[in-house]
Simulated assay, not measured.
Amino acid sequence: MSTSDSAAAGSDGLVQVNYHKYDGSLHWNLRMHRLGEDEHGIWLGLPPNSVMRKGHDREVPIAEAHVLLFPPDAWWTALFNAAPRSTEIYCDITTPPQWPSREEVTMVDLDLDVLRKRGAPGPILVDEDEFAEHRVRYGYPDEVAEAAEASARWLMDAVARGTGPFGGAHRKWLAMVDPA
């Protein structure tokens, strides 16, 4: 990351990433380096042996380097993990990411996740039960639930076919934070 990018992303060169649940409670949160932007969106990354938190709990170590993509106006974010992590791609279905400032991005996690395990033939959709439960508990409006389900379908297809950012666009960004 260049000096000007570091200064533009905040005095310490990091961006605060805050996933919330629909009731407003803090979910996964971490600080990541702003790597840059391309036609797919804004890319943030962390080197190996970094940490994240779930809510206000203790830090959770993350052994492998990873990058996180925030596409504009999409109902998802995509995490790309370096090897040997078994999950290569992990997409959270979310409300469209909001940038209150250049130093913070926030979105609501809508439970559904699309992931692809390293070496697996295709993606899988997980947490459909949690989505159904939270849809009732938190009262997801129909348009939110429909957007989440449509995003999950789109991601299943895009990850399976390797289209868009799932065709290897993450590799150059991952190389910026992964010394391997």
Rank of each mutant, 00 (worst) to 15 (best):
E130Y: 07
P84G: 11
P47G: 15
S151N: 08
S4P: 00
P165W: 03
T163Y: 01
A132W: 01
F80S: 06
F80H: 10
S86D: 13
A148N: 08
F166Q: 00
F166L: 01
T106E: 13
A145M: 09
V105P: 06
G167I: 01
S151P: 07
D57N: 14
W173Q: 08
A132V: 10
M1S: 12
H27F: 12
P47K: 08
H134R: 13
L110I: 11
L46N: 15
H27C: 06
V105A: 07
D57E: 15
E149S: 11
A83C: 05
P47R: 11
H56E: 15
E64A: 14
P96T: 09
G41D: 06
R118E: 10
T95D: 04
V67T: 14
L79T: 14
R118C: 11
E133P: 00
V159N: 02
L35I: 08
Y140W: 12
P123N: 05
G13I: 10
G45Q: 08
K117E: 15
R137K: 15
R137V: 07
D113M: 05
R31M: 08
G122Y: 05
L69E: 02
V60H: 09
S50R: 02
D157P: 00
M52G: 03
V17R: 09
P71Q: 04
D5V: 14
D142P: 07
A8L: 13
L79F: 04
G24W: 10
A65G: 07
G10Q: 03
L115Y: 06
A65S: 13
A74K: 13
M156N: 02
V105L: 09
N29L: 08
N49Q: 13
P100C: 11
P123G: 05
A120T: 08
D113S: 02
F131R: 03
P96L: 10
K21P: 05
M107K: 00
M32E: 13
G13M: 06
T95N: 04
N49R: 12
D92V: 01
W43K: 04
I93V: 15
A147W: 02
L14N: 09
D157A: 12
D38N: 10
A7G: 05
T3V: 12
L174C: 11
P165Y: 07
Y19H: 14
D12H: 10
E104W: 07
N18G: 01
H27V: 05
S151E: 09
T87E: 14
D109L: 11
A145L: 07
H66M: 11
T163K: 04
K117M: 13
D12I: 09
L68E: 10
W173A: 06
K54N: 13
V177H: 03
W75V: 00
V159C: 03
D142M: 06
D178Y: 07
R31C: 07
W99A: 06
L35A: 08
W173L: 09
H170W: 15
L44K: 05
A78R: 03
A8Y: 11
D109Q: 11
L69I: 10
N18H: 13
A160W: 04
D38A: 04
E104G: 00
R153F: 05
D142V: 14
R137Y: 01
